[in-house]
Design a protein around this nucleic acid. Sequence first.
DNA 1: CTGTTAGCGCGTTCAA
DNA 2: TTGAACGCGCTAACAG
Lengths: 336, 336
Amino acid sequence: MTNIKKVSELAGVSTATVSRTLKSPEQVTEATRDKVMQAVKQAGYRPNWLASSVKSGKSNSIVVLVPNLTNPFFLRIIGGIEQAAQEKGYSVLLGDTQGDSKRENEYAGMVLSNRADGLIQLDHSFPFAPQDAELADNVPMVSVCERIEGERKYPVIELDNYAASRALAHHLVGYGHQKFAAIVGQISSQIYRERLAGIRSVLQEENLPLPDEMLVGGSYTIEAGIEGVRQLLKQPVRPTAIFCFNDDIAIGAIHEIKKYGLRVPQDISVVGFDNIKVSAFIDPPLTTVDQPAYDMGRRAFEVLSVLMRGESLTRIREILPFQLVERQSSGPVHSS
Amino acid sequence: MTNIKKVSELAGVSTATVSRTLKSPEQVTEATRDKVMQAVKQAGYRPNWLASSVKSGKSNSIVVLVPNLTNPFFLRIIGGIEQAAQEKGYSVLLGDTQGDSKRENEYAGMVLSNRADGLIQLDHSFPFAPQDAELADNVPMVSVCERIEGERKYPVIELDNYAASRALAHHLVGYGHQKFAAIVGQISSQIYRERLAGIRSVLQEENLPLPDEMLVGGSYTIEAGIEGVRQLLKQPVRPTAIFCFNDDIAIGAIHEIKKYGLRVPQDISVVGFDNIKVSAFIDPPLTTVDQPAYDMGRRAFEVLSVLMRGESLTRIREILPFQLVERQSSGPVHSS
DNA sequence: CTGTTAGCGCGTTCAA
DNA sequence: TTGAACGCGCTAACAG
């Protein structure tokens, strides 16, 4: 272990001088600076980050809780967080929770034990264990996409899911569709409610139905899309347009629809949500709502950064712009 | 800041007793244990992780360097690492390097300054800055998929890329293909050389050519696949089979081939590498080589774990099994 | 400008 | 079994 003491002896100065030379070189004579720097080099010295952090009480790390690492959409968000964090000298501790609350509790606990200074939650659950709830009151925490449930309100960076769903619905209604279905994601979340409400509002305005049996799914996976289509196609009436609550679901849905010998969009239009990379390159390219995932990540860190500095926020909710991306998976209803 | 001292005062014992009660409860009387535990609860005390780590000199964290977070294949590897790490009480510091050596240097430096105990590199470059090379001699480091370049050999968990490429080549040769092309990834890596060598070895055995103008690409992206196909289709002779060096490239390639009005696999067979999730659900489903990404990640951590314990390794190179996944993007050559 | 001293929060001696 | 004291490696305060 090559520590500051060794360097100080090597350079013939005090440990304090070594520390100063490295932190604020301008406060030191050029002569001593040279001596110290040479000793540092010779000893191969690196300040022990752990030790300096004990003093400052700051770890300069944040925990990012993600329910599912395999979802490429989350990846882009994490990329944005990581980028912004790195620029400010923060490290990102990755917490893959698999939606398991035990794991969430564990990871969340890191910020209670000074292993991290803040927390970004990509899921909708309150990540702390019940017995830690009070302690958690003072931890900087931000949620992205989803909204953390519970009494206490945390800042959230999200999309206007209601408006985005309305945009999709209008898009499909504009093509003359009347028989709709939806393959939804996680039902217990705010996102589910808002997106569904958005769709419903448009359909009601147009006097179009969205019967309960046309609502299937329950998770944001390709498999859910496949299974969803199977269920929908068992119904007596076939929908001509399907809202998928994310692009993975849509990819599964399109795949399965084709398996049934049906065509997209001639027989069934499919729309998604997220605009992940591949969505533009599947066949047919997917009509979807683009979410500025990377920017959402960046912004989430910036907001967290404010919180970690102990400052207070003007806005507790930031809504980022979405964009309807019209591709070829949606089209006019085909009169049969 | 609720520290050990406060708890000790609250419980009417010394700080040492508090520390002991939490670390080795059996060394403490039940009476005092109860007192302490109650005080801990009441004060909402959590041992300061930073402080305890200074003592032990271990951060129980590792850095994972990934060149590109948007590649779903890397994600699965990271998932495996994260999982294994969590089980052993380690945290994962995510380092998105974007292939930038400055960033690599910075992240790699973390392990020199005790911010992390070890390093897993997913890229092929030696991540430390030249001036840190000596220091780096003693840091636990493992590479996955790629092999870290340089004098010193680090443990590597990889695939038999040579054999896997041969399997793909045999598969295509078996379908009667004679005109081959390849859209490759990063050229500067070992993987590139091995995969290409594997393909070449089979083609030579069969007396089939792989002319230089049939080698295009240079990065592991969808865009590279698209651009690659454009270049290939400009050539006077059209290949009937294309090796794509990963699935993303293949997805781009298939997309672009269809744009030209050609069919996969009737006009051109396409094969990939990695077997990412979507590959099974694109149209046509992709023939590819399945890499056990998750297991590779797990194994990488386990090997790193051995290194971090200061033990030495029996094998410095671990080769995990691949599997040829035959789907519908490859087929018999169509006589025109 | 530099050295001495103190202390961050904790774990681990060594006595008692 | 418990407590006092020391030290981890570093930095901040104060003298000089």
